[in-house]
Write a protein that binds this DNA or RNA. Structure first.
Lengths: 105, 105
DNA sequence: CAGGCTACCTTGCGACACAAAGTACCTTGA
DNA sequence: TCAAGGTACTTTGTGTCGCAAGGTAGCCTG
């Protein structure tokens, strides 16, 4: 899969998932990789950026199945950011599709 | 506009336009910038990459309105590449929208 | 000949996906 | 008891590529 396409949408995917409930990083990797190829080396740096920007918070929860999990929770500013990205995404798709439309192969 | 979103789609836009007829670089900038912000610093390096990859060819045409124009023409392998990118694009949009779908705000 | 449009090209920077490697916890089974 | 394998987080380095900025050069008008 074209890795360049993912740029700019991964953040939206993560925020969208977190809107529905807190997740830990490893879980996010598994859930997102159901629909696009993704690895931990992508998610963890992204989560750090998002936290630095204040759109998510995190907290640690002990686990019986392995090391402690770092759960991420979306903030109020994160929800606003998600709405912004969502409308940007739909607008972008529309404008690309419009440009591609005159295409007869 | 989110510059990250453009990644991976610019090539498709250019190839799609060239499928409908030869264009020169400056013209491509103008036509594409009708639907997304783009500058020459983006297009010219991209055209060079595309030519190096053999998906486009170029030829020079004199102009009465200024310096000579370098026209770009899509190759057979470029048309195949375009078809590949096109289906990748639609598949990508579908999978992102599917992931976003469970989203209740 | 200055100013402005057309047209091309290059350099340098920054953002970010991702491979790779490291740390550490748990359970299972020989 | 100790390897093996799964879970989970983190960091480092590399490569791609959009884009601002700056340069060259042709054409036309006043």
């Amino acid at each position: 899969m074209n890795s360049q396409l993912k740029r700019g949408t991964l953040e939206l995917c993560v925020l969208s998932l977190l809107c529905r409930g807190d997740c830990y990083g490893y879980e996010l990797v598994n859930r997102i990789s159901e629909c696009m190829q993704i690895t931990e080396g992508t998610i963890y740096p992204l989560m750090k950026r998002l936290k630095d920007n204040g759109v998510i918070d995190s907290y640690i929860v002990e686990s019986q199945e392995g090391p402690p999990r770092k759960y991420y929770k979306i903030t109020e500013s994160g929800r606003e950011e998600k709405e912004k990205l969502l409308s940007e995404w739909f607008g972008f798709v529309d404008s690309i599709n419009a440009l591609l439309k005159g295409d007869n192969g």
